[in-house]
Design a protein around this nucleic acid. Structure first.
Length: 359
DNA sequence: TCCATTTGACCGAG
DNA sequence: CTCGGTCAAATGGA
């Protein structure tokens, strides 16, 4: 067991190390990849050893004491991290799904364009970045109104439990700032789908969007589909995470390529001023992971992730997390077992501090 | 006054 | 024609 704990510690330290260096590594994919590999190996080995020791313990009860460190660690933190990593690079969803040392059950697939048969799959959704002009001249904003989805546009779907305390209508906070721009009743769905885009779309030309919908069979679970990448500065999910940036900074946006330094110390005057509403479901400023309120969302402590619209409705819910996707590329890793060991076997808060630093 | 949300209308793909 | 996605006017809150 000592070896296992040692491996877990190592993985956590590597993770923390990577996190701290992330801003400087975003332009160094190879180094980033090797760091990820190291982390993956550490947790993978630990997981293997744990499995070899005996049957996995049952997952922790979904209802944890509100405000508890464990809950926080297993909910908002991991969700925001997962989402942030996906936003940073969709393929890193694989990394997270692979070895997330916490509780997150991540399902990751790569979107196969045109793939699939989702009952609620978008028919024509998405926007083009100018230039397609498929709807010739119906309005002065023709380019903006093109709804044809860009070929290969990444779509990542996650499932997150709705908060069970407070307003359960609020979709989970993923650390980005979103502005709702529409809501539609979806055929065959009991709940409407809400459409959000990045609050800073106009300012930074950020094209990130997301769709939020409750699952028919599990109203306590939101299915959130992310489209496009954040190119804005202020929607950084966390202070320790740089905002998701494409490998090559866009040259079409109104802002010059963003400096890493700026991501950590955003100028307060840069973005449009905005007010906080008590019901606001987003957080704009880079937020310390540790400062998130535990009850913000996902008390269930389970998330699935996929990066394809094709599997949006195929992705197994929390109640059946191990069902593979139809395309066969979706994978799941029972890291919950590992998380269980970490969080339910008497890990002290000091150990948690070791993992994540003082909150 | 500014910004977010709501909601009916519009658009395009199938 | 249907339906999902988006637009944009109306509305409300700070």
């Amino acid at each position: 067991m000592e070896e296992i704990l040692s491996l877990i510690f190592r993985g956590c330290n590597l993770t923390r190390d990577l996190e701290s260096k992330l801003p400087s590594l975003t332009n160094n994919p190879s180094l980033l990849a090797s760091s990820c590999d190291d982390i993956v190996r550490a947790f993978s080995r630990a997981s293997d050893l744990l499995k070899a020791q005996g049957p996995p313990q049952p997952p922790p009860p979904p209802e944890l004491e509100a405000g508890g460190v464990q809950e926080w660690l297993t909910t908002s933190h991991t969700q925001a991290m997962a989402v942030a990593m996906l936003a940073l690079d969709p393929f890193q969803g694989q990394l997270f799904s692979d070895k997330n040392p916490f509780d997150v059950r991540l399902l990751t697939t790569r979107e196969a364009e045109g793939g699939s048969s989702s009952s609620v799959r978008a028919r024509g959704g998405g926007e083009l970045q100018g230039g397609e002009g498929s709807d010739a001249g119906k309005s002065p904003v023709t380019q903006q109104r093109s709804r044809k989805r860009k070929d290969g546009e990444e779509r990542h779907t996650i499932r997150a439990a709705a908060p069970r305390i407070g307003n359960t209508e609020i979709p989970p906070d993923d650390g980005f700032t979103w502005r709702k721009y529409g809501q539609k009743e979806i055929l065959g769905s009991r709940f409407p789908r809400s459409y959000y885009r990045c609050t800073h779309k106009s300012f930074y030309g950020c094209n990130a969007r997301k769709q939020v919908q409750r699952l028919d069979d599990d109203p306590n679970t939101f299915e959130v589909t992310y489209c496009g990448h954040h190119t804005c500065l202020m929607s950084s999910p966390t202070s320790s995470m740089p905002p998701p940036q494409p490998p090559v900074a866009t040259t079409t946006g109104p802002e010059p390529p963003l400096e890493v330094e700026a991501t950590q110390h955003p100028l307060p005057t840069s973005p449009p001023t905005r007010r906080r509403h008590s019901m606001e479901l987003e957080s704009d400023t880079p937020t310390e992971l540790g400062l998130r309120m535990p009850g913000s969302f996902n008390v269930a402590g389970s998330v699935s992730l996929s990066t394809t619209a094709a599997t949006t409705t195929q992705a197994p819910g929390p109640s059946e997390p191990s069902q593979p996707a139809r395309d066969g590329r979706e994978v799941e890793w029972p890291v919950a077992d590992l998380a269980d060991v970490m969080f339910n076997s008497g890990s002290s808060s000091s150990e948690m501090d070791l993992f994540f630093g003082p909150m």
